[in-house]
Nucleic acid binder design. Structure first.
Lengths: 112, 112
DNA sequence: CCATTATGCAAGTATATGCTTGCAAATATA
DNA sequence: TATATTTGCAAGCATATACTTGCATAATGG
């Protein structure tokens, strides 16, 4: 389990996206995170390790607890990738919007 | 190879991101795409299948060619996920920007 | 019609991934 | 100090992933 370890790979897993979601608003320790999922603590611990490896979270040692804090700056890379194609889907939505607007207008025309 | 098949998984692979990049501006057939990579045509064909499965591209049959066209609307899902954390990294950049601006101003102060 | 070209399908392989159980280490609490 | 809690590490396992080679199919062009 030591291969490609980038932010795309990290967010590919739904459990890891959920973990990100959990700690984005409030840092939490490993056990607190693990309790919210059906899998074992070790499974979650590994997900946290992966997220840590690619810089999406930072672990702070507080006594015997290890508190996980979101570090989501790396997501800007994904944002940049997606945004360069924004026109591809935004224009589609625009088209749909225009189509619906036109449709609505035509219906109004019918009624009047 | 029939498991999780979502857009996050699709863009996790660098080859698939490269394929997306290639066909985003200009649709191309399978062989034309495969020629640009070091792996075999079959490997690329599988990547195309995966991209097709999750709706990131459409395949149009033209004679014996199969032309791949980008369909990047699905990326809006990734965009939505990333954007909800935008403050996490944008504020960091803002801080850095402000810091640099301040630094620059202070240097000006020294010189004058 | 036959050779070429574009492509898919199937089988096989090495490694990655996601998960488990078991155990050890470190810290906190009674 | 004895016990409980938080966590990491290691081994093992089933499946997914990324890739290969070999062969079949379908369309094009001489």
């Amino acid at each position: 389990m030591e291969a490609r370890r980038d932010v795309y790979q990290a967010i590919a897993d739904p459990t890891r996206r959920a973990i990100i979601n959990m700690i984005a608003t409030q840092p939490q320790n490993v056990n607190a995170i693990a309790e919210k999922f059906d899998v074992t603590r070790q499974a979650i611990s590994l997900h946290i390790k992966i997220l840590n490896d690619c810089g999406l979270l930072a672990v702070k040692k507080q006594g015997r607890d290890r508190v996980c804090e979101a570090r989501l700056e790396q997501l800007s890379e994904v944002s940049a990738f997606v945004d360069q194609y924004r026109q591809h889907w935004e224009s589609k939505l625009d088209s749909l919007e225009k189509y619906l607007a036109k449709l609505k207008q035509e219906r109004h025309g019918e009624q009047h």
